[in-house]
Design a protein around this nucleic acid. Structure first.
Lengths: 133, 133
DNA sequence: CGGAATCCGAGTAGATACTG
DNA sequence: CAGTATCTACTCGGATTCCG
């Protein structure tokens, strides 16, 4: 054993989401946040323009989408390609890193979508037991 | 080809997070939400008691942890085991479904932690270009 | 089309105090 | 220990307006 390792969660990684001050926690929130996850998911299929994204991500406002895209671009997960034509055209696409991240994210989303029946059942059981009191 | 399939995102799955009204979006938010993700992550190593959980998930308040655990329990991802001793002892652990979900979640978290250096670099580049103006 | 800026209400999060 | 209750503060997020 060449490295000193005590427990799995006690890795000597420089970054640890469980620590309050770790920057990785902020990025995790950008990625998994309400609109971040859906935006990345939409871009997973390919590059999209601003309003195409808005339509894909059902329910997002211009403001939130704009804000979300900025955060993801700043974190290096999304690339913004602006063409100064008239009318202007701006395409958003995943960076290689963004694609890797989104792969993992989609695995999570698809699992969840596939097991929603079990989740719904669990909710009914929970409500029947708790709500009755 | 035996199934009718038009596009990957156009699957005829009953649940689709991209749709505003889909219940899967709510569950996704429980799982990936600020405290949900960290709580599941903490429980991935094994069952924990309430205050152990509080210490692991750095920065969470009692209220938020309690609320988070209720949501995850209701969705069938976390199991609550209470012993009516004195002092009371309550253990939380992942259900099999919760474990599956958390596996995917941890894959995402670990990827992110491992690439934070790239994220931080991207941020500096972004700020240098944008913040300068 | 692709945004930025402003306003404002609703919901969320934290601190605190209390209970079993 | 394991929570609940309450209060306040703050942020989030939507609608609107305006600009390049």
């Amino acid at each position: 054993m060449t490295t000193t390792q005590s427990a799995p969660e006690d890795r000597d990684l420089p970054f640890n989401v469980f620590a309050k001050s770790c920057p990785s926690r902020v990025t995790l929130e950008h990625v998994t946040g309400r609109w971040g996850a859906l935006t990345l998911g939409a871009l997973y299929e390919g590059s999209l323009r601003f309003n195409e994204l808005r339509r894909r991500v059902d329910g997002v406002s211009e403001k939130m989408l704009s804000q979300t895209l900025h955060a993801l671009e700043r974190d290096g997960l999304v690339h913004r390609e602006a063409q100064l034509t008239n009318p202007p055209r701006v395409d958003y696409e995943l960076t290689p890193l963004g694609h890797e991240v989104t792969e993992r994210l989609m695995a999570l989303i698809h699992l969840l979508e596939g097991r929603m029946d079990a989740v719904l059942e669990a909710r009914e059981r929970y409500d029947a037991a708790r709500g009755a009191r």
